[in-house]
Design a protein around this nucleic acid. Sequence first.
DNA 1: TAGATTGTTAATCGATTAACAATC
DNA 2: TAGATTGTTAATCGATTAACAATC
Lengths: 218, 218
Amino acid sequence: MEKRISDSVINRLPRYYRHLTDLLESGTERISSRELSEKMNITASQIRQDLNCFGGFGQQGYGYNVELLRNEIAKILGLTQGYTAILIGAGHMGRTFATNTKFESRGFRLIGIFDTDSKKIGQEVARHTIRDYREVGSFIEEHQPQMAILAVPKDAMHNVAEEMIAYGIRAFLNFSYTELSREDEDIVVENVHLSDSLMRLSYKLLENNKKNTVTSQK
Amino acid sequence: MEKRISDSVINRLPRYYRHLTDLLESGTERISSRELSEKMNITASQIRQDLNCFGGFGQQGYGYNVELLRNEIAKILGLTQGYTAILIGAGHMGRTFATNTKFESRGFRLIGIFDTDSKKIGQEVARHTIRDYREVGSFIEEHQPQMAILAVPKDAMHNVAEEMIAYGIRAFLNFSYTELSREDEDIVVENVHLSDSLMRLSYKLLENNKKNTVTSQK
DNA sequence: TAGATTGTTAATCGATTAACAATC
DNA sequence: TAGATTGTTAATCGATTAACAATC
C-alpha cells in the first residue's frame, strides 16, 4: 500500500529539482546527501528520508548520481507526463507567467492563452496569439489540456474556475487574490499569493530589527 | 523572554490577514475561531494557538473583533512600520509586481524602480519613472529604503544583492530563479519561485490521477 | 579489503489537536 | 445567571534528527 507522502516532503521536491538542475548544468556527476545538505541548508538525514519516500536512488559509498536523481524527481513530480496548460487572463501576471516560465524545460506545454478583452485578443504573447475567452470551451474539448492557470481579476475567478471545471479541467494554478479551494471532487489547486511573500519578509525584517535593538541594549 | 515563533505560524499570518481583510470588507464585525476555521480549512484550536503566540486578542463568549484582530496582525507583520522598498529590474516580473501589489493597502511604499537597460530607463511603470541602476547607490543613501525587490536575471542576482547589502539594505524579496541565501549577518530573504508552484500542482495532479485509476480498478 | 555513504530504524523534537477551566 | 467561546494546559500525532547496520 502507498504510504501517504507529507506536504512537507512534497513542498521540498521542486527545490531538490532546482538544485539538481543547477548541479547538472555545472557538470557535477555525483553528490552525497551531506554535500547536498550543505548547499540546501537542510540536514543530510532529511534528504535521505525524503528521497526514500519514493525509492532508493542512491548507492552506498557513492552517493547519488545527479542526472539519475534529477530524472527520478522529474518523474515523481509528473514532469514527464507531458501535461498541457491553458492560461486564462493576459494581464500583467498572465503575460509574465507565460513569458518567464520555462514550460518546456519543466516538461509542460502551454497551448493557449485566453482573455475577454477585445483589445488584447489577437495580440502575441510568448509565441501565442491571445484567443477570445468565448472559444475556451471548444478549445478545451479539442485539445484536452490538464491544467488551467488563472490570472484573472479576483471577482472573475470563481466563475472562471466553475466554467473550467464544467469543461473538465481538474488542476488549477490560481494567481488571483482570492483563494480557490475545493475539497470536493477531484480538483487540485495551487494558490499563489505574491503579497504573502512580501508580508513574510516584512515580519522577518521587523523581528530582525527587534532582535538587534535588544542585543545592542545589553 | 520572547518565545521563538515557529515558521508554520509565521507562514499562516498573511493568510489570516487576507481572510480578515475579506471579512472586514464584507462588513463582518466579529468572528469566532470556529467560524474562521471553517472558512480557512484549519482547526479552531490551531487558530487560537497561533494568535496566542502574540497575545490574547479575543474575548470569551464573544470571539474576535474582526477589525481589531486584523490591525493586531498588521502590527505583528510589520505592516504599520511604513517600510519602503525599491524594485531592481523592470522586466516582466518587476513590472507585474510593481503594478499588481497593492503596496499602500499593505502598508508598504514602493519608492523607486531601477534597471540597467537604457531603453527602459525613463519609461513609466506603476506611476514611477524607471531610473538608471547606476544611480541606485545615491538613491539608497538619500531615501534609505528597507527592502529591495530583486527581479533581475539569475546571472545578475548575486552581484546586485551584494551591492544592495553594501549600500545597507537588509531585506530582500527575490524573484530570480537562483535562491538567495544568507545565514550570515542580519539579512532576511524571501525567495519566490513561481515554477515551484507549477511543479507542486503537477505532483498533485499526478497523484490524483493515480488514486482515481486505483479506485476505478477496484 | 577499507572507507564511504546509503537506507532504515529508533529517538527526539515540535506542531497540531483535544479538552476544559476561566471568564465574558 | 446561562451560554458561548476564549486562553491555555495536556495529549497526540507527525516530522526531523540521530544512529548504525547494510553494502557498494
